[in-house]
Design a protein around this nucleic acid. Structure first.
Lengths: 195, 195
DNA sequence: ACAGCATGTCTAGCACTGCTAGGATCAGGT
DNA sequence: ACCTGATCCTAGCAGTGCTAGACATGCTGT
């Protein structure tokens, strides 16, 4: 392997990442429906078919963006949890961090959790960063709690519901803090009949 | 207005409904991405432009399907609530009915709550059936509860999260009952520090 | 009863989409 | 110096939502 082909391989890897970043920026700026292969190719200053030498298609590019997002989400959730590891505070911090992530980067969040995907979630082939992000929720609950996974699953689902409905304009963006407080309070509560 | 033009208007109204039903069936059978204006036109046995004499475009057809769904959802939720109006049981029944609705008719649910839309939700122009559906959640909580709307909002969001993540394969379909039980228990609980 | 108007419908086409086949260009090794 | 293989681009395909213009039909005023 010559130095020249090494350089080529390096450039190829850079271009791979360039495509991912360009797709992400374009989606964040104008939405995923504006991310067409032509515009993307123009943006990375190559012709359209070059995209298909890196990815199998548009879906594959979106999947790459999503996986990049899983890593970032995991680190943000982890940092939030470790900032205040006391029991209910940690859950509250992680949940807030999750909602912030979703609102700050709506297109990225869409690629990760809303648009059709074939990324395996609760599965053996689950990307490790995704599993890591989920585990941040699990770790908010006491290790003795045998239903931690269930707790985490429902918490995550509820947060996703809030994020998704807010992003599509089906829930007013105001009062997010109240919803968050209420959700965390109830999840962390010891069941007692009431209402 | 002659009898003939009355008949025409009647036929036109029928065709309007026919388009909506055809779109809905096609979406339910093969997903919304398979609902193209050409296939839809072929299905109703008219040419493509006829669709545009009834609706402003594909979005408009999907909105019509969604609005039809809001009515059906409202009646189902209402029936569930009235079957067992006692306090926590009603909430449980309504939530279960919501999830059943989402799983039984995934494409319809998508049009209503997942795909981009410009239907106003918490707003003056909200379609009455949608408001009625939401009120079924509100009515699960005691009228003295000054935060009923918040309760309902978060409950709905959590259910939507579960439904959305399940439908897109991001959550395994098994264990839906456990998630439902847990959610309702926590929402109905009187807050007490725990975990 | 008939000309003219209005309504309704269709064929054909536009600009766009994701994706791909084929040829041209250029570097590498012999 | 030549061949080989990889790389990249131009051009094109089938399909998308949507629309303009032609055509036929049937209602209406004289």
């Amino acid at each position: 392997m010559s130095a020249i082909s090494e350089r080529r391989e390096r450039e190829r890897a850079q271009r791979h990442q360039l495509i991912i970043t360009a797709a992400r920026e374009l989606a964040e700026a104008e939405g995923w429906e504006a991310v067409t292969t032509r515009r993307l190719a123009e943006r990375v200053e190559y012709s359209q078919p070059v995209l298909y030498s890196h990815f199998t298609g548009k879906d594959d590019i979106m999947r790459a963006v999503a996986i990049e997002g899983f890593g970032e989400l995991a680190t943000r959730l982890r940092r939030a949890r470790l900032t205040d590891p006391a029991s209910p505070a940690a859950l509250h911090a992680v949940c807030r961090a999750y909602l912030e992530f979703a609102t700050e980067q709506p297109a990225l969040y869409q690629a990760m959790f809303m648009l059709p995907t074939d990324v395996k979630f609760a599965h053996a082939e689950t990307p490790p960063p995704l599993r890591a992000a989920f585990d941040e929720f699990v770790n908010c609950f006491h290790p003795d709690n045998q239903r931690r996974e269930l707790f985490a699953e429902v918490t995550w689902s509820a947060l996703h519901g809030i994020a998704a409905l807010t992003e599509s304009g089906r829930i007013p963006p105001n009062g997010q803090a109240e919803r968050l407080d209420f959700l965390v309070t109830q999840i962390a509560a010891t069941p007692r009949p009431g209402v």
